[in-house]
Design a protein around this nucleic acid. Structure first.
Length: 752
DNA sequence: AACAAACGGCTTTTT
DNA sequence: GCCGTTTGTT
């Protein structure tokens, strides 16, 4: 979609409407980003509104950047003072500016998921609770939910035993964050809401400044975000929200599509505008998407249409296993003569990406991977950031503990524990204790309190403390990249990584990458650099450069579009994910996720589901996703099937495998056609499982057998193992079992 | 204190 | 099939 084109009547209406709150429900590919940008430009050009009186909030930095670029093109330059950024970044700015109203100082640090986990562990320890019994991640998700719902520790009400525990941890957790001058992601939002709630003067200031508030991806707002928007918009209702209920896929982090309804209730005068024309996909793809999403209730119906009538039918394929799935993708791309960059490969879980990556590597083809082990979550990157964070704010003991002995410098667990105790005894932060020790020098006495450290440990502590103080003294005069160099050298971290190993080299390269980020933004202070690093995500760095297919999760795909899209693992247990099976609400979200995936495709869509899928090491059956049966058969090209690459052509509509989950058990559906495993299609260097047979197999695929307690079934696979044989059998009543031939005493049933 | 080897828990999805 | 943690060894 180019900005040169005309706006259609609905878009035009959305851009120019005024005088009341507006809710734009925009279908996929309907140009909502464009509408937002045009509206900002429109407001500025009206002259009645100064750019600094406009606040536009998005969820990702990428969306913010895209919007900024569009606005710039429309206005022929950057509007002065326009507030345009993500919720989190905007909140962080407000908090730093209003620090005097808060418990947290302006130089607070931001904790990510890993740091949060460490804090929970500390809190558990403090409360004498066993972290094996109360899993930190679980506790954390309860705390996070509370924060997203704006429930402070004091107001937290437990409804289960675990919640009771979590409630206590929550209080301790917040206290620890405060001690560390730290905020987590959820705090950024919650604290701003609390701040505006308790400081009317501050609230008034922001309300008076921001005359227009625009919100992107409104369906993904959680309660905290919604309340924040409402606070800022005040009564005047110059609120402009754009979203699509059908693309709400962040329930798990507190997003609440009911905010759409709340909005209508809170602003009864508001106007709702539907954007139904799609400028992205073919009609066929749109039809498929609508067939899928139609089955959800609680949605505003939109009649999506496009001028791109017809279109290539959807290829649904069933490769044998993940390897064949990956080979199919690679071969299809290789054989097609389209630009490799026009392909996207999407999947439900990050864990699925590995097989595809391997296939691309084998084929010698480049690819772009979004997410997975996220750059900023890598150990070495986190280490360096921890160094910077501690230099920035010594109260950050989580960061300090991370690096105090990395690289190893003689400060072991014993010494650290002693240091922690000693600090706690005196009620001072860890770093202050460290400093105090250093202040005593190498001497043996320090006034009254004798230091509890033997000579060797103290020497190490003093050395480290001196390093730290040195960096702290330089942090305001030395630019961030140089500060990084200094730390990397003097801490011995570079030498520690560059030990000559291949892995060390890779890790060092990641550090250089981080340094490049710092170099790219030379004007950023240390505080700003750290904030940026904490609040950007991988998708944000996805650029258009590079002529390679893109690998990404369905979540990461939102807002993007590609000429050709593969969705992998369209199977029960994966999409929909098995964690969603018993929650209708979550199941609806899985459906929306699938919908998001489908609607990313401009021209051509491939949906793949494996016959066999290994979950964690153990092979299991793949059952086609129930969502596939919602696709009208005439939209599917099942004859082409896997012919282009892999093996099986497959009749979908008639198969038991294809029926919804409720109507067939694993065992029964298997009994229909016992399929021979097909091997990968690509020629040689493909990593193939050893097919060598040290022992002649005594069972063959498709053979009928009887087991003493499991009854009758069909052999799915028989593979030799150390002189024995592992037989996988699908039993009529008991489902799939893997058995050791010597133990199972299977009897052949010859009823043919 | 530092390393190697075994072990167990785990996977949704992200700002 | 991976990662981080625990355990054993020098």
């Amino acid at each position: 979609m180019d900005i040169a084109g005309e706006l259609n009547p609905q878009q035009q209406q959305a851009v120019t409407s005024s005088g009341r709150a507006i809710l734009v429900l925009a279908g996929p590919g309907s140009g909502k980003t464009r509408v937002l940008a045009h509206r900002i430009a429109h407001l500025v050009q009206q002259r009645s509104v100064a750019p600094w009186a406009i606040m536009a909030v998005t969820f990702t930095n990428k969306a913010a950047r895209e919007m900024r670029e569009r606005v710039e093109r429309l206005l022929g330059g950057q509007p002065d003072g326009l507030t345009l950024g993500t919720f989190h970044a905007t909140c962080a700015r407000i908090l730093r500016r209003q620090a005097d109203c808060l418990t947290a100082p302006a130089d607070f640090v931001i904790y990510d998921a890993k740091d949060q986990e460490s804090v929970v562990k500390q809190a558990l320890k403090k409360l004498n609770l066993d972290e094996k019994r109360y899993r930190p991640r679980q506790i954390l998700s309860i705390i996070s939910r509370a924060k997203n719902e704006l429930i402070a520790p004091e107001a937290f009400q437990a409804r289960t035993y675990l919640e009771e525990v979590a409630g206590r941890v929550y209080g301790e957790y917040q206290a620890l964050l405060r001690e560390n001058d730290a905020l987590d992601f959820d705090d950024l939002l919650m604290q701003v809401v609390f701040l505006l709630d308790t400081h009317p003067a501050v609230l008034r200031k922001y309300q008076q400044r921001y005359r227009h508030i625009l919100v992107d991806e409104f369906q993904d707002t959680n309660t905290a975000q919604y309340v924040l928007i409402k606070q800022l918009a005040g009564g005047q209702g110059n609120l402009f929200c754009v979203g699509d209920e059908d693309q709400s896929i962040y329930l798990f982090r507190g997003a609440d599509w009911r905010n759409v309804r709340r909005f209508r209730e809170d602003y009864p005068e508001s106007e709702t505008i539907l954007l139904e024309q799609n400028y992205r996909s073919t009609q066929l793809i749109l039809d498929a998407a609508q067939a899928v999403i139609k089955r959800n209730s609680n949605r505003t119906h939109k009649a999506l249409f496009t001028e791109r009538k017809g279109g290539a039918r959807i290829t649904v394929g069933e490769p044998y296993d993940e390897d064949e799935e990956a080979e199919f993708v690679v071969n299809t791309i290789r054989r097609g003569n389209a630009d490799p960059g026009s392909y996207a490969i999407m999947y439900r879980t990050n864990a699925q990406s590995r097989r595809i990556e391997e296939a691309f590597v084998r084929a010698g083809m480049p690819y772009r991977l979004v997410g997975a082990t996220r750059f900023y979550a890598r150990r070495e990157v986190k280490d360096v950031i921890a160094y910077l964070r501690v230099v920035h704010n010594q109260a950050d003991s989580i960061g300090l503990l991370r690096i105090i002995n990395v690289p190893p410098r003689g400060i072991g667990a014993k010494t650290i524990a002693a240091l922690q105790n000693w600090a706690a005894e005196q009620g001072i932060p860890l770093a202050a204790a460290l400093e105090k020790i250093a202040a005593t020098g190498d001497g043996t006495r320090s006034g009254r309190a004798p230091l509890p450290f033997p000579g060797r440990a103290r020497k190490a502590l003093v050395r480290f403390a001196n390093l730290l103080t040195g960096w702290v003294m330089q942090r305001d005069t030395v630019p961030v990249p140089e500060l990084m160099d200094l730390i990397l050298e003097k801490s011995g971290y570079r030498a520690y990584l560059c030990d000559g190993s291949r892995e060390g080299e890779d890790r060092w390269e990641n550090i250089l990458e981080l340094r490049n980020v710092a170099r790219e933004y030379p004007e950023l202070t240390l505080t700003e650099f750290l904030e940026r690093v904490a609040l950007v995500s991988e998708v944000d760095n996805l650029t258009d450069e590079g002529d390679a297919p893109t690998l990404l999760t369905l979540h990461a795909a939102k807002g993007l579009e590609f000429p050709t899209v593969f969705i992998l693992g369209v199977e029960e247990g994966i999409l929909p994910h098995k964690r969603s099976w018993d929650e209708p609400e979550q199941m609806a979200e899985e459906r929306r996720l699938f919908y998001v995936g489908i609607t990313r495709a401009r021209n051509k869509l491939y949906l793949l589901h494996c016959f066999r899928r290994a979950f964690w090491g153990d092979p299991d059956l793949g059952l086609p996703s129930r969502f596939l049966s919602d696709l009208p058969p005439e939209l599917i090209d099942d004859r082409e099937g896997m012919a282009a690459g892999a093996a099986v052509s497959y009749d979908y509509t008639g198969s038991a495998l294809f029926s919804p989950r409720s109507s067939g058990t694993v065992g029964r559906s298997l009994l229909t056609p016992a399929r021979a495993p097909s091997r990968g299609i690509s020629p040689s260097p493909v990593k193939s499982r050893p097919i060598a047979r040290p022992v002649e197999p005594s069972y063959r695929t498709g053979q009928r057998v009887r087991h003493d307690s499991f009854g009758e079934g069909i052999v799915i696979e028989a593979e030799p193992a150390d002189g024995d044989e592992i037989v996988t059998v699908a039993f009529e009543d008991k489902g799939l079992k893997r058995l050791l031939a010597s133990m199972a005493k299977l009897q052949a049933v010859d009823d043919e």
